[in-house]
Design a protein around this nucleic acid. Structure first.
Lengths: 184, 184
DNA sequence: TGTACATCAGTGAACGCGCGTTCACTGATGTAC
DNA sequence: TGTACATCAGTGAACGCGCGTTCACTGATGTAC
């Protein structure tokens, strides 16, 4: 693929470079100049596509919420597997995940990102709708928050390296019995 | 308190300034020069006490683990209240919490911070030891991870503003029924 | 009580660096005729 | 098929800024005698 004056594909290449950079140094250390360097392009080019750093991270968060919605939906009606899918997403797309939940980094209220977030929320609601009613009578939103919290917390602890070493290297296998405790 | 040439109390003042700065802009945006400005001291002074930014954040993480251990221990033997104490700590000491779980920011293996972390871990173990054995036979470490995950996840979601607005402004009250679901 | 001296916390000028932003530009692509 | 022109993605030089680090220094404090 000969590079001409016009790159022709720069936007996705910059997003991929951003993911790489964030996985290495975290989202706050990101600089547009570094991204340009990684993409082999002049330092002013990224601004053409994203305006500024917040614009780029907004695009990344939007992409992330889309991927999360797809991942959770694909897990089907089984709530434990939906939770596992959430955790797997967080770990396999760590850069997206970290950006998504640091609203100060991007334009949290941007319409596109809000729509994508809404889709992701809905995928979790759908997974929970299939859970058989628990013995206790009133349930309310506590079940949803509990499921979300346990998946989100496990993912965060795993990513930060806080969990004990004995859990092995497969987060899905380690997470299944943990989430399972919530739905006995 | 007249300021002489020697400040006499600079170290804790710098830590307090760091907490303030992190609550405003996050830990990655922290600069030693900004801290010096907040403390009303020359820009080279912080290096005297902490060497560099990682040194300062290591001190902050150490302090944080100590506070967390105290908070969880003070909640006593009741596991739900221990979880609520964890969440309350995370929200009331957001700067400490954010630093503690971003190991790339500080010297994670520093002996002092490791000892403080060990104390905090132990406080959670103690709280769980008092839980009555669940109906299911084998339990193992899944119970501990589930409790830790649900508290950690709820705190993270609350701090990032991801939770729905209807929960009110008291995280402890909102968290209690959520954690409670794990120990019915 | 007084003097001499070591220690060490904090100063301030200087440096080089990477950053975001601006702006006039270049050159590839697509469209109108 | 050919020419003219508008559009727009990407360039590269220039700027001002805040940062960390270095280093010779200043001055307060504590200790020895």
């Amino acid at each position: 693929m000969a590079r001409t004056y016009h790159h022709g594909n720069l936007r996705p290449v910059l997003l991929a470079a951003a993911i790489e950079a964030i996985e290495q140094d975290g989202p706050a250390a990101l600089s547009l100049r570094d991204l340009a360097r990684r993409a082999g392009v002049s330092h002013a080019a990224p601004a053409h596509h994203f305006g500024d750093k917040a614009g780029l991270l907004t695009a990344l968060a939007t992409e992330g919420y889309g991927l999360l919605a797809d991942a959770v939906s694909a897990a089907g009606d089984e709530i434990v597997e939906a939770g596992v899918a959430y955790i797997r997403f967080a770990i396999e797309h760590r850069a997206h995940f970290e950006v998504m939940f640091q609203p100060g980094l991007y334009r949290h209220d941007d319409p596109e990102v809000a729509a994508a977030r809404e889709r992701a929320d809905q995928s979790l609601v759908n997974a929970l709708a299939a859970v058989p009613k628990p013995p206790a009578a009133e349930d309310g939103p506590a079940a949803r928050l509990a499921a979300w919290s346990i998946a989100h917390g496990f993912a965060g602890l795993w990513i930060s390296g806080a969990l004990p070493a004995g859990l092995g290297s497969d987060p899905a296998a380690a997470a299944r019995p943990v989430i399972g405790r919530l739905f006995r």
